[in-house]
Design a binder for these strands. Structure first.
Lengths: 232, 232
DNA sequence: ATCGCAATGATTGTCGACAAAAGCATGAAT
DNA sequence: ATTCATGCTTTTGTCGACAATCATTGCGAT
């Protein structure tokens, strides 16, 4: 029984209300418009996003199974609030999964994709040097880099778990932490070395460098938290 | 801002229709009652599981975001069908994530949990020796072992992703593959060595052994597929 | 005979109303 | 004064009907 891979392709254009609701709520949670720990009623959400309860409930179910909010029957929904420890655990998961992604990306990315990835880093560099984009780099540029590697792994489930589950939770804290300091420069250098390894098709090295990169990011946040510079 | 970890606790007892629908559909997919690739209408599902469309749709949304079925707007839902390649990719993800789980379990499991884990393996051994439980061991016993290690990692998100996302997809194929041969004995030996490493609190070794264990399982399936012994 | 178009049928997406459960406040009893 | 019970209010869970969209089938034209 041969199965066509493309059968499980991504959903096409027709956006349904439930999809809109899902996107709205997701960005609202990530950007902090809906604060962690905040308990919020369905009717209030309907009014806020101009929706009816049907699509809204469907979106809430999806958000719940992705771990962005918790729902207690008959008691309402609440945005998840992850502790500092749990954030560290997220980084440990990223270390393992993105290491794999980097290794597979080194084996499977096309030459074109690698060139695009290098071009992306170039634009990041100019942004940092012009000193007006540190926040942007930290927030979106970094996400962009990891996004490309996740999809470049050609591992659909891996990309789905990374992009659909983990990154949203991490980005949720990027918004309020906006950790900068001297990391952007170091992070860019680490990114460059990872891409180099990928360009040389050295999967093992790419995996190692990616793991070390994420481990460094984790330690950076951990340090700031223990110094009291960051509240979570 | 101190956040109470227990805030994101598991849902309590009150089961709602949507939860029932979710469980029903999930087991139906895993056991193969709903065949992969099968296109199925909402009203048919309602009749089959004695539900109304409201809770059903909510369950469908959850199943979709977990990757167990795909939904094209206005065109119905379809059970996912993963190719042989995609199954191999799942094992690669497991290798990375369960390696991490084993390492953290070695660092964090209680002595009681480790004793329980060893007892579990003992019961598996008697089951295999009595030769009447190979299929059971392969199907449920193995799942039991990995389940305990995932929760023993004390990494809530990791356990959620492993138990909620990956295992269901793997179990879905366990049912129809029922791969046995001489693996059960070897697998049990590998399990024992992993637990030994955990009992000695040797996280690195536990991680290495777990990765090798899953890698061996993957190669075993890969071999059978290329030999034409297994259809997917 | 085959291809394209249109109308019909079926299925999904959406909406509003009803019912059930939980939370809260008030009041009474210890 | 504190605690428990009871009623009310609010919110969630559920249901059935309506509207929008897609798939199919039949007809006509080339």
């Amino acid at each position: 029984m041969i199965v066509d891979k493309s059968m499980n392709a991504v959903a096409p254009q027709p956006l349904t209300r439930a999809d809109e609701a899902f996107d709205c709520l997701q960005t609202a949670i990530v950007t902090g418009d809906l604060a962690p720990g905040e308990k919020i009623g369905e009717v209030e959400l309907c009014a806020r996003f101009k929706l009816t309860r049907g699509p809204l409930r469907e979106a809430l179910g999806r958000l719940e199974s992705r771990g962005l909010l918790v729902r207690r029957p008959h008691a309402g929904v609440k945005v998840v609030s992850v502790s500092a420890d749990e954030l560290m655990e997220l980084y440990r998961i990223r270390e393992a999964m993105e290491g794999l992604a980097a290794r597979q990306a080194a084996e499977r990315m096309t030459d074109q994709e690698i060139a695009d990835l290098q071009a992306t880093l170039d634009s990041h560099e100019t942004m940092i040097e012009e000193a007006r984009g540190q926040a942007y780099y930290q927030a979106e540029g970094d996400y962009d880099f990891h996004h490309r590697i996740a999809t470049g792994s050609r591992n659909a489930k891996l990309a789905q778990m990374l992009l659909g589950d983990l990154y949203y939770m991490v980005r949720m804290y990027r918004y309020r932490l906006s950790t900068s300091s001297g990391r952007p420069h170091r992070a860019l250098g680490e990114h460059r070395r990872i891409v180099e390894a990928i360009a040389q098709r050295d999967g093992e090295l790419a995996e190692f460098l990616m793991q070390r990169h994420i481990n460094a990011a984790r330690k950076n946040i951990e340090q700031k938290i223990s110094d009291g510079l960051l509240d979570i």
